[in-house]
Design a protein around this nucleic acid. Structure first.
Length: 280
DNA sequence: CGTTGAACCTGTTTGC
DNA sequence: TGCAAACAGGTTCAAC
């Protein structure tokens, strides 16, 4: 479930209370989503969390040992579809599918919950961090139009597939891909290299506006996304295309369609977002 | 390169 | 009502 705005919402929540805290110990129940559980169990205890930063849909607890100010490693986290990392009172019963428990030096406990276990967790030593993050594409909230055109509009693939490709843009997922395309009036099957200048600019602008609006509303909660305080996001109330099959397009009234494009459910307005020639 | 389908795992919704 | 199928915000890998 979590895409860039949901991960950003979680990161902002964690950043309010984690920096400065020390991890006392780590207890792992299920570990099939952790790269090297023994390494996590060995490296985290005693580390201080100096910051929480997002990278696309991933985020990192930046960790420093002893009294060091500079991090010497990180806990890398991807929430997959159903993951959540949140500090709780250890006296409350842990919900089902809580797999990792990390008591902190302020009496709280960081807990990782993930029903489907599509998430990922790994300890990353500082020396291998840059190499790990380098394959990812542009940060969509910060990319200039020139960067977007160079990286995105030179590719001959369907725009829907490219928006979801984390090596092109990092952080866009199925909801925000469809919402951006609706806003830019571009059909998901369009070949990116055939977008004209106005369409490319509209898409660049739409991606940034949709993401900014979603972050402002705390992300989208379709079924179960919650922030670290347990609250739902509200951007789902502003979805114009995603999840609205059979309902009227808010712009033209035509019926929103759903079809599988690039192997994912895709919602679009067949009138506002005209299909490219030869496709339907 | 680009596309497709299957796999990973559990829970919820939909359809007959 | 009951059960099975379909579907879900994620990535990855293999095959064509």
């Amino acid at each position: 479930m979590p895409e860039l705005p949901e991960v950003e919402t979680v990161v902002r929540g964690l950043r309010r209370s984690l920096p400065g805290r020390r991890i006392l110990s780590v207890r792992i129940e299920k570990s099939d989503f952790i790269d090297d559980p023994a390494l996590v169990e060995r490296e985290l205890p005693g580390s201080r969390i100096v910051d929480v930063v997002r990278h696309g849909k991933f985020f990192l607890l930046r960790l420093a040992r002893n009294g060091a100010a500079q991090p010497d490693g990180s806990l890398l986290v991807h929430l997959g579809m159903t993951g959540l990392l949140t500090p709780r009172d250890p006296r409350e019963p842990a919900p089902r599918h809580t797999h990792v428990f990390m008591p902190l030096d302020d009496g709280r406990e960081l807990r990782y919950t993930d029903a489907r276990r599509f998430g990922r967790m790994a300890y990353i030593p500082e020396s291998s961090l840059a190499g790990l993050l380098s394959p990812f594409g542009l940060e969509p909230t910060e990319m200039s139009f020139a960067e977007f055109r160079e990286k995105f509009c030179t590719r001959r693939a369907m725009v829907k597939a490219l928006l979801l490709n984390q090596q092109v843009l990092r952080g866009v997922g199925n909801i925000y891909a469809d919402e951006s395309l609706w806003r830019a009036r571009i059909h998901p099957m369009r070949n990116a290299a055939t977008l004209n200048d106005a369409q490319a600019r509209a898409l660049h602008r739409s991606i940034q506006r949709v993401l900014a609006a979603a972050i402002k509303l705390g992300g989208s909660s379709i079924a179960n996304f919650r922030n670290v305080d347990g609250d739902f996001g509200e951007f789902q109330l502003r979805h114009r295309a995603y999840g609205r099959e059979g309902k009227p397009c808010p712009r033209c009234g035509c019926t929103i369609r759903r079809m599988v494009i690039a192997t994912r459910s895709s919602f679009f307005c067949p009138r506002c977002q005209p299909a490219p020639r030869g496709r339907k």
